[in-house]
């Protein structure tokens, strides 16, 4: 059941119920840490693999935008009183498993932008009506950039699939990364998600988001003649 409160400012958050405050803190920390991991593990290293100056500088900008998302979530966290060290890697929150695999090729980066950034879009979409308005507004600010990053994945996928070799390399990257992506959305019986929905901080269950994600990822992969390998088990 949703509990209808609206928190319009960081100042108002101080008098919100403790469970609400803890829930939004968890989300802000999670976004700050994961945005930073993504930029460090994928976006910045990808600059070296990009095939032309055009692609390199485009990747530079995308990396800076991802770092910028981390900076913005961290700034909100600081305003909320979250210690900075909780919003950077290596100090508590475990990263998503996909971040444990160092990037090795341009095709891997394109696959990540195509599919992992779509997962990020769904996560941000779920915050667009968040009851904590500073977080809602931040989600709205980052959304156009997230959409651009996914479009980047589509544009370079379209380039790669023009040749048989390029398409094979991109498909191999999709095969390698896809199995890790649906678990982005958390466990089916997540207590955190239950609390997020109770307070109207998030809208959907993890499973609803995962099902939607798999559908949308399948559509975008199909658009470029790619297939998504069968998942071993529903995450």
């Amino acid at each position: 059941m949703t509990t209808l409160i609206v928190v319009k400012t960081v100042e108002e958050l101080k008098s919100a119920p403790e469970e609400f405050r803890e829930a939004v803190s968890k989300l802000v920390i999670s976004h700050a840490v994961n945005e930073l991991y993504g930029a460090q593990v994928f976006d910045e290293p990808a600059i070296a693999f990009a095939p032309t100056p055009y692609a390199k500088w485009l990747t530079c900008r995308v990396a800076m935008e991802e770092y910028g998302h981390h900076v913005r979530f961290k700034q909100l966290g600081v305003q909320m009183g979250i210690p900075e060290e909780r919003m950077v890697p290596g100090t508590g929150k475990r990263p998503l498993s996909i971040f444990e695999f160092p990037l090795k090729t341009w095709e891997e980066f394109v696959a990540i932008k195509l599919l992992a950034d779509l997962a990020e879009i769904l996560q941000v979409e779920d915050l667009l009506h968040c009851a904590f308005h500073p977080l809602r507004n931040l989600a709205r600010a980052t959304m156009p950039e997230e959409r651009f990053h996914a479009q980047f994945g589509e544009d370079f996928s379209a380039e790669l699939v023009k040749t048989e070799d390029g398409k094979a390399r991109l498909q191999a990257a999709v095969d390698a990364y896809w199995p890790y992506l649906p678990s982005f959305f958390g466990g089916s019986k997540s207590r955190n998600n239950e609390i997020f929905r109770k307070w109207n901080i998030k809208q959907r269950t993890n499973d609803e988001m995962r099902v939607d994600y798999i559908k949308r990822a399948t559509e975008v992969a199909t658009k470029y003649g790619l297939t998504l390998p069968a998942l071993q088990q529903a995450a």
Partner: peptide, 13 residues
């Protein structure tokens, strides 16, 4: 939009 990003990326780099 992509080329605008490229320009911004070059300058920020």
């Amino acid at each position: 939009a992509a080329t605008i990003h490229v320009a911004a990326g070059a300058a920020a780099h």
